[in-house]
Simulated assay, not measured.
Amino acid sequence: MSTGPVRERSGRGFRARHGRTATVWAWRAILLVAFLVAWQVLSGRVLDPQYVSSPDGIVTRLGDWLADGTLATNTWITVQEIVLGFLLGAGAAALIAYVIAPLRIVWDVLDPLVMALYSIPKVALAPLFIVWFGIGTSMKVLLAAVTVFFLVFLNTAAGIHDVDPALVDAVRLMGGRRRDIALKVILPASLTGLLTGLRVAIPYALIGAVIGELVASNRGLGYLISDSSATFDTDGVFATLVVLSLVAAALNALVTLLGRRANRWKPLTT
């Protein structure tokens, strides 16, 4: 039987998807350039650069910080806090969710307590964490971890609860044990919830680390924001925000890549 038409349709679909991706990225670039040009033109003419800075001022500040090592040193510190906090919070959340969520009685008991803790503004925990852990790196890591924990935990638990009970029953009828159900049904079926939690949690890991640096620190990107705002250095504030955006984009791209690899087990939709 000939597979020529199928391959042709597949090739067309591949080219269409890549063509659409290229179009999307082209429009993103156009909008970004238009925004930067408008910002540069309006700054100093219509807008006061003391309050809104300007693209050339931001580039100049980044160049100065790169030259003297300020940017590299403080960025590396914040990236470490974000990554460690993210790994600690996400790892603990996923592990606890896979232990607790399948036990519906335990989940029903703990659910309101978890939601009550989740509702506490994490910025309100910063002063308490300073008392407990000081102003060192561990405080920022733990604050980021707590911020990440609930997002990953709740999304993973939701994914576990959405597992089709018929699949679990089928594995049991075939003689599957608890371990088989956990590894061959619950884990793969709940990956979507876990990966959603990981993606949503990335900016919150950054927020937790930066909040800790803003509250009490003498290094890191949060410290650069605090120090720049204290000296009315708007260029420095915006330059730091640009770096934070790039860090968040890089981490999000990494989790997206991992998510694509993890989702290869899913059947193709027709």
Rank of each mutant, 00 (worst) to 15 (best):
F153T: 02
D233K: 01
T270R: 01
T21K: 15
T240L: 07
V79R: 06
A34F: 07
A239E: 02
F232G: 10
R261I: 12
Y98N: 07
M1R: 12
A216L: 08
L88D: 03
G19P: 03
L198H: 01
I225C: 05
N252Q: 14
R28E: 15
M174E: 13
L258E: 09
F150E: 03
P188R: 00
G208S: 05
S53N: 03
V242E: 00
V46D: 08
D164H: 05
A116N: 07
A90I: 08
M139W: 04
A239Y: 01
G176C: 07
G193P: 07
T23G: 14
L221K: 02
V215W: 00
T234C: 07
A158L: 14
A126W: 03
W76D: 13
T78N: 05
A97R: 00
W265E: 00
K122R: 11
N263K: 08
K184S: 14
R199K: 13
I225H: 06
F86K: 03
F133L: 11
P5Q: 02
S119N: 10
A145D: 04
L151I: 10
A209C: 06
E81D: 08
F232P: 05
V41N: 03
A38F: 12
I211L: 08
I30R: 09
D56S: 15
V59A: 12
W65T: 03
A126Y: 06
V52C: 08
L42N: 12
L32H: 09
S229P: 13
A22M: 12
T78F: 02
R104M: 08
A29K: 09
V141M: 04
V114D: 08
V215M: 08
R177V: 14
A170Q: 09
S228H: 05
L173I: 14
T21I: 15
D169I: 06
R61C: 10
I77V: 14
A216D: 02
V243I: 02
T78G: 02
L125I: 07
A205G: 06
S10P: 14
V114C: 10
L32P: 09
L125H: 01
T60M: 14
I160H: 06
K184G: 11
L206C: 06
Y223I: 01
G259A: 13
N155R: 07
Q50R: 15
L128Q: 03
G136W: 07
H18N: 15
I30K: 13
T70P: 03
G89E: 04
A29Q: 02
S43G: 03
D180T: 10
T23W: 15
G57F: 05
L31S: 15
A239T: 01
A92V: 12
L254Y: 11
A230P: 11
L167P: 07
T73Q: 13
R104L: 10
